[in-house]
Lab assay of single mutants.
Amino acid sequence: LSQDQINEYKECFSLYDKQQRGKIKATDLMVAMRCLGASPTPGEVQRHLQTHGIDGNGELDFSTFLTIMHMQIKQE
Rank of each mutant, 00 (worst) to 15 (best):
L60G: 00
Q3E: 13
S2R: 08
M30C: 11
E76P: 14
S63Q: 14
S2P: 03
I24Y: 00
M69K: 01
I68A: 06
T41N: 02
G56W: 06
M33P: 01
E59A: 06
F13K: 00
T64I: 08
K23A: 13
F13Q: 00
E59T: 14
Q20V: 05
S2D: 15
C12P: 01
A38D: 06
S2C: 07
D17G: 02
T27G: 13
S14W: 04
R34L: 10
E11G: 10
M30E: 14
P42Q: 15
G56P: 15
S2T: 15
I24T: 00
S14R: 08
D61R: 06
E59V: 04
K23L: 11
G37W: 02
Q20W: 03
K23S: 10
P42R: 15
M30H: 14
I24Q: 00
Q5L: 12
K25Y: 13
Q5F: 09
G58W: 01
E44W: 15
D4R: 03
N7S: 14
L66K: 15
S2N: 15
Q5T: 13
G37N: 11
L49E: 00
G56N: 04
T27F: 06
F13R: 00
G53V: 01
E59K: 05
Q5P: 04
P42T: 01
D4S: 09
K74G: 12
L36K: 07
M30V: 13
L66G: 11
S2L: 05
G43A: 08
S39T: 05
M71V: 15
N7H: 12
D17S: 05
G37R: 09
Q20S: 11
S2M: 11
D61E: 04
K10S: 08
I68R: 00
L15R: 12
N7D: 11
Q5K: 09
Q19C: 07
Q5R: 12
R21D: 10
E8N: 13
L15K: 15
V45M: 02
F62N: 00
M30I: 11
C35G: 14
G58S: 10
I6C: 02
N7C: 07
L66T: 15
L60V: 12
Q3F: 11
Y16Q: 04
Q3M: 09
V31T: 13
K25Q: 11
S14E: 09
G53S: 05
G58M: 04
I6A: 04
I68P: 00
L36Q: 06
A26R: 03
F62W: 12
T27W: 07
L36E: 02
D17E: 06
L1G: 10
G58C: 10
D17T: 03
D28F: 07
F62R: 03
I68Q: 02
E59I: 04
E8M: 07
G22P: 00
K18L: 05
G58N: 15
C12I: 15
E11N: 15
L1C: 13
G22Q: 05
L1M: 14
G37D: 09
A26C: 14
G22R: 04
M33Q: 01
L66H: 02
V31E: 14
P42W: 15
I24D: 00
Y16G: 02
H70R: 14
S2W: 05
A32G: 03
G37M: 04
A26L: 03
Q3Y: 07
R34H: 08
C12S: 12
F65R: 00
F62P: 01
Q5A: 12
L29F: 01
K18A: 06
M33Y: 01
R34Q: 14
G58A: 13
E11H: 15
Y9H: 06
G56R: 08
M33T: 02
S14P: 00
G58I: 02
M30K: 14
L29A: 05
D4P: 05
K18P: 10
M33N: 00
F62A: 04
C35W: 12
A38P: 05
L49A: 03
S2A: 13
E11W: 05
E44R: 02
E44C: 15
L1W: 04
K74S: 04
I68N: 00
D61V: 06
T27L: 11
T27V: 10
I24M: 14
E8P: 06
E11A: 10
R34M: 07
